[in-house]
Amino acid sequence: MDNNNFQRKGVKSNTEAGKIFEKIIYNFLEKNNVILENQKKVKIGIKAKKDHAFDLGNDSIIVECKSQTWTESGNAPSAKIKNWSDAMFSFYLAPGKYKKLFFVEMSYNQKYCKTLLEYFIEHYFYLIPSDVLLIDYYTDNNNFEVYAYNEKEKMHVRQEKDYLWNYLR
């Protein structure tokens, strides 16, 4: 099979890249005493409700994990960004009792001098629910940046790393 059909070099498919990233996030959270299950089903909907499987979750936390990169020409992957917007809508429809985490595998673009998550925040801030915590995760060194909603700015802004652990308490 030709890997050029997929966004990520070195993996069999985009789905495989996503599953690998989900496992990395699962392990990262588990090491920090956050125990989750795969494919956590939560009833979401506007009036009628239907089960939706979030990538990870438990009775108080739901997590979506996205592993996308900029296009080879250095542009934002518009179809993938739409997928991120769909994830934001699912978070919006989820019950308020859940802490909501959106993990993105860090992908930096030198042309724009920003990560794909920073680009998403800048251009789609109006679609991101205020109760969702956004995390840009650097798989190379297990480092991360946290973005939380700032009422004054009316968008998600970078926070100290401890913000994540305080949020999950």
Rank of each mutant, 00 (worst) to 15 (best):
R158E: 13
G10E: 14
G10C: 11
D136F: 04
I135C: 02
Y163V: 08
D86A: 12
E72V: 01
V42F: 06
P77L: 04
K154C: 07
N27G: 05
Y126M: 12
Q7H: 07
Q110G: 13
F120V: 13
K40N: 13
G96A: 12
L127G: 02
H123I: 05
Y138W: 11
W70D: 00
K152C: 07
C65V: 02
Y108E: 15
F89M: 08
I20Y: 06
Y137F: 15
I46P: 01
Y98V: 07
V34N: 04
Y163R: 15
K31L: 14
A53Q: 03
Y126W: 10
E16A: 12
F6R: 05
E151V: 09
F91R: 03
S13T: 14
V42L: 06
V146A: 05
W165I: 12
Y124D: 10
S60M: 00
N141M: 11
E122Q: 12
V157F: 01
C113H: 15
H156V: 11
A148G: 12
S107F: 04
C113A: 15
Y126N: 15
D51Y: 09
Q7R: 13
K152R: 12
E160W: 02
V104N: 14
S67I: 00
V63C: 01
A148D: 11
G57I: 01
E118W: 04
L134A: 08
N33T: 05
S60I: 07
D136W: 05
K80L: 05
W70M: 00
Q7V: 05
W70N: 00
N142S: 15
L101M: 10
K99H: 14
I46S: 11
E16H: 09
I61D: 04
K43D: 09
K152M: 07
G57K: 04
I20E: 13
T115Y: 04
K40E: 10
V104Q: 09
K82A: 10
I61F: 03
D136E: 11
N166G: 09
I24A: 09
N27T: 14
M1Y: 09
Y163L: 09
K9W: 11
S78M: 06
F6S: 09
L93Y: 12
A94M: 08
I62N: 01
T139E: 05
D131H: 11
L93A: 15
M155G: 11
A17N: 13
F102W: 05
D131L: 08
K41Y: 03
I44C: 11
Y147I: 06
T71G: 00
E30S: 13
S73Y: 00
V11N: 06
L133H: 01
L56Q: 04
V157G: 03
D55K: 02
F103R: 08
Y98S: 09
W70Q: 00
S73M: 00
V132R: 10
D140F: 11
I20A: 03
K100F: 04
E122N: 10
D140R: 15
L168T: 11
V42M: 09
V42Y: 09
Y119I: 03
N75E: 02
L93R: 14
N5S: 01
Q39W: 10
W84D: 05
A79N: 13
I81A: 07
D131N: 15
M88K: 07
P77F: 01
I20S: 02
S78T: 10
L101G: 07
E37D: 14
K47G: 10
K80I: 02
M88E: 07
A76Q: 03
H156M: 09
S85K: 15
Y26R: 02
F103P: 08
K50Y: 08
